[in-house]
Amino acid sequence: MSEVIVVTSGKGGVGKTTTTANLGVGLAMRGNKVVLVDTDTGLRNLDLLLGLENRIMYDLVDVISGRVAYKKALVRHKKFETLFLLPTSQVKDKSAVNPEQLVQLCEELRKEYDYILIDCPAGIEQGFQTAIAAADCAIVVTMPEISAVRDADKIIGELGRADKENIKLVVNRIRPQMVEKGDMLDMGDINDILSIECIGQVPDDELVVTSTNRGEPVITMENSHAGQAYRNIVGRICGEQIPFMEFPKEGFFAKLKRVFGR
């Protein structure tokens, strides 16, 4: 049985594309056949995060318009051979793909792939409605920050109106030391406020930046906390019961240094 998962957020820049890339790689590392569909029209990014930017020949709009078969447009990952990308178009016309067309494409993809992950544009306009149309499940990415949580609530409302009941939350860019000081919302707070089940909490991690620089998602890095968090989410998507990770507490010396200045 294949599953179509849309990764969405409301507010931009909270980590949708990062999450899509990492979950895609993680699911493929477990042997699943995975296709990532970038629907953020005009703002092509997912190819960069996967290191596939030089291999793109055709895009989603070419496929939807019937110019090429989807198999021709898919870009296979260099390292993870069961992972494919369907890149978004660089043209700015956001209405180039309508919901029915994406539903139809996903029906085709379901025949061949175990997981179809859709990277959604920010906002609640047409692009959002298109991205969610085919989804069995939505992952809402948010950050521990009031505006991101508020926008997540909007998106959750919109998903409800579109009869999408299966919604999971990912809280990204948590800074454990700020949480410890009582200066940042934690997963429990956000879970309580939004009343949506959390499927993961990802710490803010410099390795996300360096791995993005290299085009190799952080989930492949054994020693990264964010990587571990993404591996846990992948396990939960696959139905495993995995306890939420404890973030490393600030060390005694680091605390002393903070208290007594530099």
Binding site: I146, R150, D153, G157, V179, G182, D183, D189, I193
Partner: peptide, 23 residues
């Protein structure tokens, strides 16, 4: 109050309004 508690309280209030507004 810690800033996180303030954030939580503000969010709870604003979401009641948001939800009533959109529906």
């Amino acid at each position: 109050k810690s800033s996180k508690e303030i954030a939580r309280d503000r969010l709870k209030v604003v979401l009641i309004h948001d939800r009533a507004n959109v529906s």
